[in-house]
Computed example of a mutant assay.
Amino acid sequence: MRAATLTEFGSPLTVHDAPDPETGSGEVLVEVLATCVLPYAAEVFSGERHYPLEPPVVPGVGGIGRIVRVGPDATKLRVGDLVWCDSTVRARDDALTPDIAMQGWSSRGAGGAQLARYLHDGSFAELMRVPTENVYPLPASAAADPARWSALAVYAVPYGGLLAGRLEAGETVLISGATGNFGSSAVAVALAMGAGQVVAPGRNRAVLDLLADRFGPRVSPVELTGHEETDRAAMSSAADGPIDIVLDLLPPHAPSSTARAAAMTVREYGRVVLMGGVGMLGGADLALPYPWIMRNSVTIRGQWLGPRTANVGMIRLIASGALDLTPEHITRFDLDQVNDAVTHAAAHGGPFDRTILTPST
C-alpha cells in the first residue's frame, strides 16, 4: 500500500510505499476511501499543539472505507461493506475506566500511549487496521459520496457532547465557539437532535449571518465584544428563555474569559459540557465561581469524544435526513497531495468547509 507518514514534527508528510497492515483477531482491514483533514492538522504536525504522537506515524482521524478483511470474531461485518471507522480506541481490559487513544492522532495518559503504540497508524493511507468494534456499517446511499460522509469525524464530537449534556427536544442550547469548524457543526447537530433554540455566539459577523441564514429563526446569533460581562448579558438576552445547556468547543488559543462568560449563562439546574481546548497552550484557567455552581445546582462535566453508541446515532441522523450534508463544501485531495490538503485545511476551517483526503481513488 501507499501511505503518508509524519517522520518528525515540523517536517512535511512523506508519501511512500509501505507494507500492508497485518490484522489479528478482533481487527478489521479497511481500504480507506475518504478521510477528513482537520483544520488544525498543521498545528499538530508542526508540534505546536504538543500532541502525544510518536513519529514515524501515519496520521489521520477515522474515515470511510470498504472492508478488505475481517477477523474470526466478526459476526455481522462482511468483506466489501462500506463502513465508518471511528478513531476512538478503548482498551478492552478495563470496562470501568478504559485507557483511550485516538488512532493516528492522540492519546490520554500512559495507558493510552501504550494503546496508541499498538494501533499506531491512522487513515492517511490506502489501508488501515481498525479494531472490530470501531467499524460501523453505513447505508447504501453513502456509497454515492463517501467524501461527504467522512465529515462524521467532525460531527461525532459535538454529538458526543450533547449526549453527555442530556439534550432533550425543545431545549435551548448555547454553543460556545459556534463560528468554528466544530462549533458550527454543533449548531447543526443540536438542531437535528431537536433543540428548540440554539444561541450561537462568536466574533465573526459573516459566519454568524451564515448560520442564521442556513438554519433560520431557531438560531440566535450573538456578536461577541471580548468584554466578559457585556457578552454574558448579550448571550443571555438572545435566548427566548432560560438556557438549558452550554456546550463549549472553543479552541486552545481562546481566552478562558470567553468560555466562562458562556458557561455562566446556563439556568439554575442547567448543564455545562466542556469539550474545547481552553488552557491547553497555557493561559488562565476557567475559574468558575464555586458559590455560583453550588447555589444554582449547576452540573459541569468534561467530555472527551463520545461513547461507541454515538457513532450509530450520528449515522442515523444523517441517513434519516435530520442532518443534511448536502450544503457542505467539499474539497478533495489525492494521497500524493496530502501536504497541499493540510495547508488547504488550515486556510479553510470555517463552517461546513471540509478538506477531504481520498487515499484509495
Rank of each mutant, 00 (worst) to 15 (best):
R2W: 00
R2V: 01
A3N: 10
A3I: 11
T5P: 05
S11L: 09
P12M: 03
P19G: 05
D20P: 12
E22H: 11
T23S: 11
G24D: 05
G24R: 09
E27C: 07
V32G: 04
V32K: 06
L38Y: 04
H50R: 12
E54K: 13
P55V: 10
P56M: 11
V61G: 07
P72V: 04
V79G: 08
W84G: 02
W84D: 02
S87I: 12
V89H: 05
R90Q: 13
D94P: 12
A95H: 09
I100R: 13
I100P: 03
Q103K: 15
G104K: 14
S106E: 15
S107D: 08
A116D: 02
G122H: 09
E126A: 11
R129M: 00
E133T: 11
L138P: 00
A144D: 14
A151L: 04
A151Y: 07
A156R: 14
V157S: 12
Y159L: 15
G160M: 13
L163E: 13
G165W: 07
L167M: 11
E171L: 07
T172K: 07
V173L: 05
I175H: 04
S176V: 01
A186Q: 03
V187H: 01
V189C: 06
A190Y: 06
L191Y: 04
G194L: 10
V199W: 10
A200W: 10
G202K: 08
L208E: 11
L211Y: 10
R214I: 09
F215Y: 15
V219N: 09
S220N: 08
P221S: 12
E228C: 03
E228T: 04
R232N: 12
M235T: 09
A238K: 14
G241W: 02
P242L: 05
D244T: 08
L247C: 10
L249N: 03
L249S: 04
S256L: 03
S256Q: 00
A261E: 06
R267I: 01
R267D: 00
R267K: 13
E268M: 13
E268C: 12
V272F: 04
M275N: 07
M275G: 01
V278F: 00
M280Q: 11
G283Y: 01
G283D: 02
D285K: 14
L286H: 07
A287E: 13
Y290F: 12
M294E: 10
V298K: 03
V298H: 01
R301D: 10
R301P: 01
G302L: 01
Q303Y: 01
P307I: 12
P307Y: 12
R308F: 10
N311K: 01
G313R: 00
M314N: 04
S320Q: 14
S320F: 04
G321E: 14
G321F: 10
L323M: 06
D324W: 03
D324H: 05
L325P: 06
T326M: 10
T331F: 10
D334V: 12
L335T: 02
Q337M: 11
V338N: 02
V342Q: 06
T343F: 02
A347Y: 03
F352R: 01
